[in-house]
Design a protein around this nucleic acid. Structure first.
Lengths: 406, 406
DNA sequence: CACGAATGTTCTGAGAAAGAACAAACTCGG
DNA sequence: CCGAGTTTGTTCTTTCTCAGAACATTCGTG
């Protein structure tokens, strides 16, 4: 659902319908490709002549391309249209607590190359390193295909307009501008976004063709912290201070463990990967100790999940408790926003089969209505690199999303 | 911020810009009235000719009217335009646990007549009673002015499309259709809406002229229950199951008193009027006893507020505790949505001066950032009948809100 | 190989926005 | 009292896009 904001663009001009129709057409192709001009005309209830006119412009822009003619029962065989994605590239970068991932993808999110290195927190060192790696990747793999931008995903709040990283505690960044230097170094547009929002955008714009764009859902990321990307009426919710979706710091209890944010009993202190690992190790979770404890113990969340899948009792129990609290957190989201769907991302989703019954039961127990209790909750496996898909979406989504009118 | 949904209306036609511009123009007049054509042209950055053309249509439709010419320093004196509200009427009905309010208002929410009677829960008795009262009101006070509809506000979930009351526990209504019979009885359109959402709509569309339409805020109602109307990107959030905004049932503690919804420690069990009165009376709050206890004790929330204002220690303390928990609840809303403003409605706002410091302190203590902590929290006094204003908004808002394209 | 049927293109007309030109109404200064 | 200057509001012409019809293309079929 794309919107035209009649407040920010002051007026509709003679070209407004044209821009709207171009947008609708592009999205119809995106959702139904391959699709013929005649079919588009039927769906949009406009003449085929108009479609010819509009597609010509989109083809000239390089947004669509014509495929082969395809068989049809009778009459002239239709010429199919496709969204041009395979030769338009994007670089997705995911900066996390310990590792940084760099992936070269095409516009539909298909991986072309992937690199990993230890996270460098000093921006003045990080930017040249990224520059070297991205350059090399493009030289090696791009082969004449054009890279249209970089999508940088960070664990923390980001200003939507300036791209400033306002606060990313895991990286120790406060009011860091990485966009400007990286943009200069690489000579291409750089988009910076908070991880859950980027993941939500990927859900919207990199979903399977044929499925329509989801318009009311919440993407919950469970990693070192717990965050959420909220989409309402087809628009990402950032809030006044770019801090919407901080469901990780919703309190579940008034007297639980202290969280990094200073409050007691936040969802995050029960369900973050740190908390789960601590629980597995039999240690009390506390924000101070966890950071030091975990690396020294050598146990990672992936390890805990693997052991749970192998049937180790202690690991299963630790995840069980995480699932129960996560269910409580999701129940809050359902009460607040009543989304059509909740997508959960993070390492623990690899054990979804074991977690789901507990989560569902907890949600059902707390839901206000049967319908709310039945809210679909689906996992996105971390093996599909959701955050890197989010990075790609940062570059490719603006092509499909609502046009901005000056 | 009005939106045009490019998904539901399939395409933009040649008349789309015209409809958009009519909408923008109408809203500019609404926000800046009185305003001249020349000023509108400057704001919309279009020629004065276009404005003449568009205003002519709106005047013909009866949406605008021309006022007097006013003085200007030099040149031809501009002719001011106004939104036609004073001779367009609406009936607002607020059905509450004990009393039902019926108000005849004009389109800007000015009260013309007000009646109250004891709530009748049986719809087949309620509808004829409402019919009698509305008829009489219109006969007595309308005097040639046309009543364009009824806005009915109920404490509970309402289906946005059908107008069915899905669940209103205070009235004992489940899947009750009051819209159809009332519409037939009165022969005018009836809009049914959940109270917090209606109040939020009133905030958007019946705000003081000169102030722009707020686009990201939450309206929290504190009465027998606690609910919220959520507005994001200029659109009301209803959620999949029409149950968005149920912040009253967000848990503050895991082991607090049991709520009507079956869970422990909901915001509502600490901050609803029932809870506050129970606390004042020194009784433990429990959903079963409260309903019976309060009428028999004869103490109302208004009484408690009055005694607190008069300085009675016990009343002040009871409200203090309510305020602290309310602050905790608002903190959850701020984390979830980061709104630009929170509006609080309900009887307890009459004691706002005493409550505010406590609420603010609690919000600040729990907020994640300084900016979030500074989120404006403003009261709407119940003496201004916010729910009835909401009823009026149900009728008048569609005139200003986004047009629907077939 | 003519015919029907479907797709895709081209052409003409209608209607709205854009903007220039014009009319109206007022102030101010001589 | 009158004309210059200024601002508002109206009218008229131009321009550009949508709408829809007519036309061209390309297939299967008898």
């Amino acid at each position: 659902m794309r919107k035209i904001n009649t407040r920010s663009f002051v007026r509709a001009t003679r070209w407004t319908p044209r821009e709207i129709n171009l947008q609708i057409l592009l999205n119809l192709v995106r959702e139904h490709e391959p699709i013929s001009r005649a079919e588009l005309a039927r769906r949009m209830k406009i003449g085929r002549g108009m479609v010819t006119y509009l597609t010509a412009e989109l083809i000239a822009q390089g947004a669509l391309y014509e495929g082969d003619r395809v068989d049809s029962p009778r009459g002239r065989r239709p010429q199919m249209l496709y969204v041009r994605t395979h030769d338009r590239l994007a670089v997705a970068i995911d900066i996390r607590f310990s590792s940084t991932f760099v992936m070269l993808t095409d516009f539909s999110g298909n991986s072309i190359a992937l690199e990993t290195f230890e996270t460098i927190e000093d921006v003045s060192v990080l930017v040249p390193e990224l520059q070297r790696r991205v350059r090399r990747m493009l030289d090696t793999h791009a082969s004449a295909r054009h890279c249209e931008g970089v999508g940088l995903v960070v664990p923390g709040m980001v200003d939507a307009v300036t791209g400033m990283v306002l606060n990313a505690p895991q990286l120790g960044w406060r009011n860091v501008d990485i966009r400007t230097p990286l943009q200069q170094a690489l000579g291409m547009p750089v988009h910076v976004e908070n991880a859950p929002i980027a993941c939500a955008l990927a859900q919207m714009w990199l979903g399977r063709p044929g499925s329509s764009v989801p318009t009311d859902f919440v993407y919950v990321t469970v990693s070192d912290g717990v965050g959420a990307g909220v989409v309402v009426n087809g628009q990402v919710v950032r809030g006044q201070t770019n801090s919407a979706g901080e469901f990780g710091h919703v309190p579940l209890t008034a007297d639980g463990p202290v969280c990094l944010c200073g409050n007691h009993g936040c969802l995050e202190v029960y369900t973050s990967n740190l908390a789960t690992v601590c629980r597995y190790l039999g240690k009390d979770f506390s924000p101070g100790t966890a950071r030091d404890l975990l690396p020294s113990s050598g146990v990672t969340i992936a390890e805990v999940v693997a052991r749970a899948l192998a049937g180790e009792r202690r690991a299963v129990d630790a995840l069980e408790v995480t699932a129960r609290h996560l269910g409580a957190g999701l129940a809050v989201i359902i009460k607040a926003l009543s989304p059509t769907q909740i997508v959960v991302g993070g390492e623990i989703t690899e054990a979804w089969a074991q977690l789901e019954p507990t989560i569902r039961a907890e949600v059902a127990r707390r839901a206000l209505t049967d319908l709310a209790a039945a809210t679909p909750i689906v996992p996105e496996l971390s093996s599909t690199y959701p955050r890197l898909r989010g990075g790609t979406a940062l570059v490719s989504a603006p092509v499909f999303a609502a046009p901005r009118f000056a």
